[in-house]
Design a protein around this nucleic acid. Structure first.
Lengths: 330, 330
DNA sequence: CTGAAAGCGCTAACAC
DNA sequence: GTGTTAGCGCTTTCAG
């Protein structure tokens, strides 16, 4: 591996000391540096095509110019958008972005938490698989590694998430306004706060009107899970609408409905949650709630870099299926 | 930031020298180490909960335990799957994964290439936006940073990609077998090798039978682009099928067809390419070609880690729309 | 305003 | 078999 120029070589070429070069690099000249000196340094940097080696800087500072995003599955478009938000802010701040895909495994997640300590990252945007390993979290915190949980809640950690409860309530009100009365709900896993918040919002809206759900089932956040659950629900009774805990599940519901010969939205209203990009291509068009995935990432990253980590609830909005064509609501 | 234990403290606790600890850590004892010594070291490591600091190791070795994946858009599920493949292999090898999202900007891509040099990464899986900056590439190569291009071709660099040409030919033959004869083709950008290979495969299949395409249009790899192009094609003539350069575009074609009152697959056959996960949810189900995105990532990462980088063409297979329900082909 | 020097934590010759 | 030692390239006191 051919050696790149070092700060000493830049210094030598510019006829200054390494410290001076370092000061130019970091803009840390308390007293103003003589412009001529700075120019000579910049010129030398340019000539040698010099870039400071990150490892040396990290070692010296005991902190890497790195942000990490630890999440259950990067191939989930929702998380990918979030990661993209983190990356954009990190890049602008001169930081690299580590992607840590826990593959929905708490064990792998824990191993990644240790790795992130060894990497001395500036901060971690963390979407846990389930309740994460306390020890690993505590060690990170103890060592001063900043962390913010995104999209779900973890006891004792600042969280940046969408206002799922309000969003779900608004969505339910939307269905009620459209005349749906016998609404079934397919929730996500009971140990994920996001799932519970969405369910709670649904129940909130009904309670205000002294209504009760036709049924509430818990499933996974998957297409298959919702498909099977919807089939079961539709076999047993006849709701006039089914709300699913996310878009993927809603599409599963639509398929179940189609296979049972039900016309959406005439025979059955279907609603999702998330407003994932590909949902725009599903016909009939899904009524859903937009969750600002990317913005979660940018806000989280910004906080980590600024050192102003605190919980934050981002607003969401209901996205009705487009009215000029077939949609999933009447 | 509270200090973590260092290799010296481990050595002190175990009553050995730092080098011995290092040898245990790296498994580099040419002569066998006395088991008792190794055990004392392991015990000390466990007691102190010691993890080697990556920056120090990277500085000393002049090489980070890091793999990078540089791609145009991580929120594109295809690239996300690829990234996931890279991450899985990297993780198993004890490496971290840097995610570099060039956001479809050659400029940002170039900046990332410089950054990766400064990071002294072990290797780069590179999906270029377009023809990438030569200087940046050359500098990386000159410094011995391993690189493999994925999914598209760059002159002079080893590429791991799917056999798009053969896949497209097989897909075309599939349409021909189904009886489609007046096939229009909506290609991707003319400066992307993947797009050209798919177009070439299409033309190959026709040529064998002395057929000519109804029309060939170039568009972007986007839904909107294909939607608009399909509208134009269908307004001008009446192909019995439209092949699109990828699934996203195929869905755009389907929408255009639907809005013109055409029934897929009876009035118009539609075919895509990629077999992206969400395509399974589109109705009628898309006929497409499966491209092994994840495997591209794993193979690329494996090569980079092993130092056996060479071009590789992965096989693909035609995925007919499911036959038991509505599909995009007769 | 700039330079000298120490040291971040780890590894790899080279000793013994 | 294991220890000693000299840095990797950078930042940051402290001098002047």
């Amino acid at each position: 591996m051919v050696r790149q120029p070092t700060i000493r070589q830049v210094a030598a070429l510019a006829g200054v000391s390494p410290s001076t070069v370092s000061r130019v690099l970091n803009g840390t000249d308390g007293q103003h540096m003589r412009p001529a000196t700075r120019d000579r340094v910049l010129e030398a940097i340019r000539k040698l095509n010099y870039t400071p080696q990150r490892a040396a800087r990290s070692l010296r500072r005991q902190l890497a110019q790195v942000l990490a995003v630890l999440l259950p599955d990067i191939s989930n478009p929702f998380f990918a958008l979030l990661a993209r938000g983190v990356e954009a802010v990190a890049f602008d701040a001169g930081c690299s972005t580590l992607i840590c895909d826990s593959s929905n495994s708490v064990h792998k997640e824990t191993r990644y938490l240790s790795l992130l300590l060894a990497e001395r990252v500036q901060g971690v945007v963390f979407v846990p698989v389930a309740q994460p390993d306390r020890d690993a979290i505590d060690r990170l915190a103890h060592c001063g590694v900043r962390m913010v949980v995104a999209d779900r809640e973890v006891r004792g950690l600042p969280t940046i998430s969408a206002d799922n409860r309000t969003g779900s309530r608004m969505l339910t009100e939307h269905l009620l306004e459209l005349g749906y009365r016998k609404i079934a709900y397919i929730a996500g896993p009971a140990d994920v706060s996001t799932a519970n918040d969405r369910l709670a919002g649904f129940l909130d809206a009904l309670k205000v009107r002294d209504m009760t759900p036709v049924c509430v089932c818990h499933g996974q956040f998957t297409y298959e899970s919702a498909y099977a659950t919807a089939k079961a629900i539709l076999a047993r009774g006849s709701p006039d609408a089914i709300m699913a805990a996310n878009d993927l599940m809603a599409v599963g519901v639509m398929r179940a409905a189609a296979e049972l010969g039900l016309i959406v939205p005439d025979d059955l209203g279907v609603a999702g949650f998330d407003h994932v990009p590909w949902a725009a291509f599903v016909r009939p068009q899904l009524t859903t709630v937009e969750v600002p995935a990317r913005r979660m990432g940018t806000e989280a990253a910004r906080m980590l870099l600024e050192g102003t980590v605190e919980s934050l609830l981002l607003p969401v909005r209901v996205i009705p299926g487009e009215t000029c064509s077939r949609r999933s609501m009447r």
